[in-house]
Amino acid sequence: MDKEQKAIERLKLAAEMSETYYGKPLIVTTSGGKDSDVCIALALAAGINFEVQHNHTTADAPETVYHVRDTFRRLEAKGIKCTVNWPTYKGASVTMWSLIPQKLVPPTRLMRYCCSVLKEGGGAGRMITTGVRWAESASRRNKRGIYESLPHDLSKKIIINNDNDDKRQLFENCRLQAKRICNPIVDWTDNDVWDYIRSEHIETNPLYACGFDRVGCVGCPMAGRKGRQFEFTRYPTFERAYIRAFGKMLEERTARGLPCDWQTGTDVFHWWMEDGVLSGQIGFEEEQE
């Protein structure tokens, strides 16, 4: 069985489990990136009943926002329910710029609080799919599977890396109200993704044609220093927004009597961009932990 057919079969099983255990359609999540576009196309090819949801991070590039809107218009014309989830924190609406002062530290590779608040809030108590792939990082091969359960007690999480894994029956019959996840293209390579996009004439985010190899929040620490510099050159408004947020973060730290050697939001931004480390600031990550 080729990878496309395997992915379709995984989606069919996920849709069946969603209807059986939740009484609701499968949710296909989209970030506006190529992997999400492929998952949507595969769900359409599978002929399953599904919805589509997008978590608006408030830090997405304009092209990503427009691409998601265009995708939703096409899907809604087919009768598919599409939803945009706006982020909340502690019961209130939040943006990247208001979240940073509340967290008191910048988001980093080690402290990715922005992901948990802005990107991962939708689909609670439902069966969802994502475009996660092992090829994206070495850690994902150990931490992500074809099927996953995500209970409140993460020590009870079930990860299945084989379509015929013996644990799958346990996963299918588990009636705990945990979020269940299907990653239908988890074993696809970058070439597999692009080959499918070309063969099926899938419309993708225009940023890929502008030199971007990933699509995510502008300024994401996971993009690396050069990638972030490229993004801020293209989107200087986002750079100014981060600097303002860092300035408010410093004000909040001062108001709470917390130690701080940074003087301005610009100081924080330069440290955050790895342009240089100011004395005493590395300890903030240890403080947060």
Rank of each mutant, 00 (worst) to 15 (best):
M1H: 13
E4M: 09
Q5T: 14
L13H: 05
K24Q: 12
L26N: 08
T29C: 08
D35F: 06
D37M: 07
L42C: 02
A43I: 01
A45T: 09
A45F: 02
I48E: 01
F50V: 00
H56W: 11
D60Q: 15
A61Y: 00
P62L: 01
V65K: 06
R69A: 14
R69G: 06
K81Y: 09
C82D: 04
N85C: 10
W86I: 10
T88N: 11
A92T: 14
K103P: 02
M111G: 05
M111H: 15
R112G: 07
C114F: 12
C115R: 01
K119N: 10
K119D: 07
E120P: 00
E120N: 12
G121D: 13
G123I: 08
A124G: 10
R126G: 07
T129L: 11
T130F: 03
N142E: 13
K143L: 11
R144I: 09
L150H: 14
P151M: 11
H152N: 12
H152S: 12
D153L: 12
D153R: 15
I159W: 02
N161Y: 08
R168I: 11
A178D: 07
K179P: 03
R180L: 07
R180T: 07
I181A: 05
D187P: 04
D187I: 10
D190H: 13
V193F: 07
N205E: 06
L207Y: 00
A209Y: 11
G216D: 10
C217A: 01
P221E: 01
M222I: 03
G224Y: 12
F230H: 09
E231C: 00
T237V: 08
R240V: 02
R240A: 15
A241C: 03
I243L: 08
A245T: 10
G247V: 05
M249T: 05
L250M: 03
A255Y: 00
R256N: 11
D267F: 09
D267P: 04
G276A: 03
L278Y: 09
I282C: 05
E285V: 13
E287Y: 15
